[in-house]
Design a protein around this nucleic acid. Structure first.
Length: 291
DNA sequence: AACCAGGTCGTGA
DNA sequence: TCACGACATGGT
């Protein structure tokens, strides 16, 4: 992989295991817009990134090496060897090969903890396009204005201080519905220091999940998504309706199985790679099966 | 017009 | 512990 600055852009050549559309549209993140084939505006960490992929090259528009090193390199998990990850998963079970091959360009992003927490609270009982709309509504109403690479106006996701001061009624105007008090509960917990990234980072996954679940509106599944996508805990294995369906089909003879049993089964099978396995399977199930 | 969506909560057995 | 309805909103 080669990284260099050219004009006002960053060019990355010879990327491997990287398909921009698969990374963004596999259901792990919600704050982006597609502008063309393999070309997106991504909102993250108070920035907007216009990015385009052509074959094995990436163009990161209107940014610099410092931001690449400090923000985007980490966000896109560039130092992680996904060839090895896929080998490990396939070795754990060759049944995963169709999913891995179909979604070979997926990477797990390292997203902001607070935005991930709120986004996945919103995600319950909603479809991905509606989750995206709610995140956009909240950002537009309460976030900071950011200017994009070509002068376009975007809005960052608000920080804890800002969102904590928003009323339940204002949240409902963002179409989050019955989740409004849950969002309030999460903001309060993070703002007053009851649940923070620093605390969670220090805890083992069981205790971290338990602490997250002290927030009203955060259950097992949302907690696992926050751990996986917002705290870098790749051993987490969120089980939603799609994971339940495909896991039951693959491993339980199509028999109705409790989500916690599926999670335990997966953790034993995939161990530290559970989160990656989950993501390949989730997107594979959602886009190929049960149409 | 019911039914479902990257679920969780409160309730009652 | 476990099953089940309620919960906003929008799309089939």
């Amino acid at each position: 992989m080669k990284v260099y600055a050219k004009d006002n852009n960053i060019i990355i050549e010879e990327v491997q295991d990287f398909v921009l559309s698969q990374i963004l549209e596999c259901g792990q993140c919600f704050h982006f817009d597609k502008t063309a084939h393999e070309e997106y505006d991504i909102l993250a960490f108070d920035r907007v990134l216009h990015i385009k992929q052509v074959d094995n090259s990436l163009i990161l528009y209107a940014t610099n090496l410092e931001d690449y090193e400090n923000i985007w390199r980490i966000y896109f998990d560039m130092e992680n060897d996904y060839g090895n990850i896929k080998n490990q998963i396939a070795e754990a079970d060759s049944l995963l090969l169709p999913a891995i091959n179909d979604k070979q360009g997926i990477r797990l992003l390292n997203q902001d903890f607070f935005e991930t927490l709120i986004s996945f609270i919103i995600s319950q009982n909603k479809q991905i396009p509606q989750i995206k709309q709610c995140v956009k509504n909240i950002s537009h109403k309460f976030g900071k204005e950011i200017i994009g690479y070509n002068g376009g106006i975007f809005y960052s996701f608000p920080d804890v201080e800002t969102l904590n001061s928003v009323s339940e009624e204002e949240l409902r105007e963002c179409k989050v519905g019955f989740r409004a008090p849950y969002i309030k509960s999460a903001c309060k917990a993070v703002y007053d220091g009851t649940v923070t990234k620093e605390k969670l980072d220090r805890l083992g996954i069981e205790d971290a999940r338990e602490l997250l679940m002290t927030i009203k509106g955060v259950g097992e599944k949302v907690a696992n998504c926050v751990l996986l996508f917002g705290l870098g805990r790749r051993e987490a294995f969120p089980v939603d309706v799609w994971m339940k369906r495909i896991m039951e089909q693959m491993y339980f003879g199509g028999k109705d199985t409790k989500k916690c049993d599926i999670e335990t089964f997966a953790n034993h099978k995939f161990g530290a790679f559970s989160g990656y396995a989950q993501q390949y399977l989730f997107d594979y199930a959602r886009t190929n099966l049960f149409k």
